[in-house]
């Protein structure tokens, strides 16, 4: 906490603000620090050499990345549409997009199984095509995309909204088609927000447990493995895996901070 302004009168209100700030900092940092110092370096080394651990972390990374990429390909046109056009029911569409944020995580898994299972026409169609959702990587990516989509869409939409429509209008008047305009003007000005959206959605996906555990206990993503180790062997054996997962999430988080900070500096 930087308190650079000397003119502030330091009354009881000020001290209340500061102390609540300290409580919050401690509340966030204390458990995380404990998590990192509890396992020895040796245990961390052994744990990452454990094939199950390495597999689950790798699975977590690439399913989360796939979820983010799917959000990118399908979400970008919709985000642009929402940023540029007003239409009846736009608020409803925006509300639907944010629904996955509000739904309890296990419910997401149950809902998706309801559609992808044998009792639903859609599930039967998938089965005929040889696509299995239950207990498969496909299933994991499906639920991760479900929970990650709103984060990408909201960030990309905000990015497009920040680009003045007049820039696109001028570009069109100078002879550029809508496609040329998008790739020469809109994208270069909004790519940073799109990247932030990709990182936010993959960060969201990599931490998902509740929805995944319903759809696919196996193959095991890192959060499920951590849960299993905790249930079977206790705290001590789940901590090293958790440290590795947190490290990877932190890398994503720092990338995000660097990118967003640079953006504010540029403006």
């Amino acid at each position: 906490m930087m308190l650079t302004r000397r003119t502030i009168t330091r009354g009881p209100f000020f001290w209340l603000s500061v102390s609540s700030g300290i409580v919050i900092m401690a509340f966030i940092l204390l458990p995380l620090i404990q998590l990192f110092v509890a396992p020895s370096v040796e245990m961390l080394r052994v744990s990452i050499q454990d094939k199950d651990v390495a597999h689950s972390i790798w699975l977590s990374i690439y399913t989360a990345a796939l979820a983010a990429l799917i959000s990118f390909f399908f979400g970008t046109p919709l985000a642009y549409l929402l940023a540029r056009h007003d239409f009846k029911g736009k608020r409803i569409v925006e509300g639907i997009i944010d629904l996955p944020i509000a739904i309890p995580h296990p419910v997401v898994g149950i809902a998706i199984l309801g559609v992808a299972g044998k009792n639903h026409v859609f599930g039967q169609l998938l089965a005929e095509l040889g696509i299995r959702v239950m207990g498969s990587v496909t299933g994991i990516v499906t639920v991760l995309t479900f929970v990650a989509l709103p984060f990408y869409l909201d960030a990309a939409k905000a990015g497009f909204e920040a680009v003045s429509p007049r820039l696109e209008k001028v570009s069109r008047s100078l002879g550029a088609s809508m496609f040329s305009t998008f790739f020469r003007i809109t994208f270069p000005l909004a790519w940073r927000s799109m990247l932030v959206g990709l990182i936010m959605s993959s960060a969201r996906a990599i931490g998902e447990f509740g929805a995944v555990v319903i759809v696919a206990y196996h193959p095991m993503i890192a959060p499920v493995l951590i849960y299993e180790r905790f249930e079977a062997y206790g705290l001590k054996y789940s901590q090293p895996v958790a440290v590795w997962l947190v490290l990877i999430s932190l890398i994503l988080f720092f990338l995000l901070r660097i990118l967003t900070l640079r953006k504010t500096v540029e403006q």
Binding site: S164, R166, L167, K169, V170, L174, G175, A176, S180, P188
Partner: peptide, 25 residues
Amino acid sequence: GIVYQDYALFPHLSVKENILYGLNF
């Protein structure tokens, strides 16, 4: 051609690239 009150220059391009933008098409 259209010229707006708020200029609507492309902020990621240099002045010269702005002026020459239309020649791409």
